[in-house]
Computed example of a mutant assay.
Amino acid sequence: MITILIADEHELVRTGIKRILSFETDFEVVAVAASGEQVVSCCQKLNPDVVLLDVSVQGIGAIETAKRLIRRFPGTKIVFISDSGQLALVSQLLDIGVHGVITKDVTIDIMVESVRRVTAGVRYLPQDVAQRLALSRYNSSVSETPFQALSERELNIALLLSKGTKSADIAKELSITAKTVNTYRYRMFEKLGIKTDVELVHLALFYKLIKVNQKLCA
């Protein structure tokens, strides 16, 4: 039996994926979670075989969640669910050790296959994602986004800021000081060639790092 944890900020999505996976006789969804903190806590208690981790996970964010899972639960496989076009984020997550990536527009069969493949110890990438990623790494002028110049921590903070999370809340969630958050903010602003959070949101939307309905009011 393959045990699975589903992590997504939307209850409807969590319920839908759980129902889909319930038709597989060798799958068991042991928990669902809305935030990165909940994911880590559930893994501590349940030690699932696979975590389906959505880009929209609340709290500490997808990157920090993945890093903590890889560090604390090396036996748990992570399949990251991204929006189409989030190449910079996918690249960062693969670099830190995520075991598989699928996009939200894949078929049910591909999602099921990704779970089986990573459980068997095989890294999983849909063919189109693998091709675009390989092309961008081979030729930096192709499919590159400015976000690929950011470090893991900078990209994680960029995602949180783009979704409207305040510096004080980011500091609390990542166990760093607000001053450190601002240091990362201005460092990534320089790399991205921008000066304000508003410009960051526009850039994140343009490169599909976030969706319009993810933007929160300050």
Rank of each mutant, 00 (worst) to 15 (best):
E199P: 09
T177C: 10
L12E: 12
F23V: 06
P74I: 02
L205H: 08
D169E: 15
I17C: 06
E144K: 15
I60Y: 00
I6C: 00
G85S: 01
V101S: 04
I194V: 01
V198T: 08
S151V: 04
F80H: 08
G164E: 11
G16E: 01
E199T: 13
V79T: 12
E154N: 09
Y124V: 07
A33R: 09
Q86I: 01
V39Y: 02
S141W: 07
T119S: 11
Y184Q: 00
A204E: 15
S162W: 06
P74F: 00
L5T: 14
K208D: 14
K77Y: 13
L89Y: 02
L192W: 10
V122H: 08
D8T: 13
Q148G: 08
G59F: 07
R132K: 14
L125C: 04
S82W: 05
G61E: 00
I78A: 02
S136W: 07
E173D: 09
L159T: 13
F23S: 11
T15Y: 03
T145K: 06
D128W: 05
Y138D: 10
V13R: 05
P146A: 13
A149Q: 12
R137I: 02
K191F: 07
T145F: 07
D105G: 12
E113M: 12
F73E: 06
A33I: 05
R71S: 11
R187F: 00
A66W: 04
Q86A: 02
Y138I: 11
R72W: 03
S91Y: 01
G85V: 06
V13H: 07
F73S: 07
G97A: 08
I170M: 10
S91Q: 02
F206C: 09
L205F: 10
I6K: 11
R19H: 13
A66C: 12
R71W: 01
P126D: 09
L53H: 00
S175A: 12
I110K: 15
Q127H: 08
A149K: 15
P126G: 05
D197E: 09
K215P: 08
E64I: 04
L205Y: 09
L160C: 04
V101G: 03
K211P: 00
K18F: 00
F206E: 14
I20G: 04
E190W: 01
L53D: 06
V122F: 11
V115Q: 02
L192M: 04
T177Y: 14
K166C: 03
S140K: 15
L87W: 00
Q214I: 03
L216W: 15
F27Q: 03
T107N: 03
R153V: 07
I110H: 10
R137Q: 14
S84M: 05
I20V: 08
E37N: 15
L125Y: 09
T103P: 02
R68E: 11
R19G: 07
H10I: 03
I96P: 11
S141E: 15
I60M: 12
A34K: 15
I63Q: 04
G75L: 01
L203C: 14
S114D: 08
I176L: 05
I157P: 04
T15L: 12
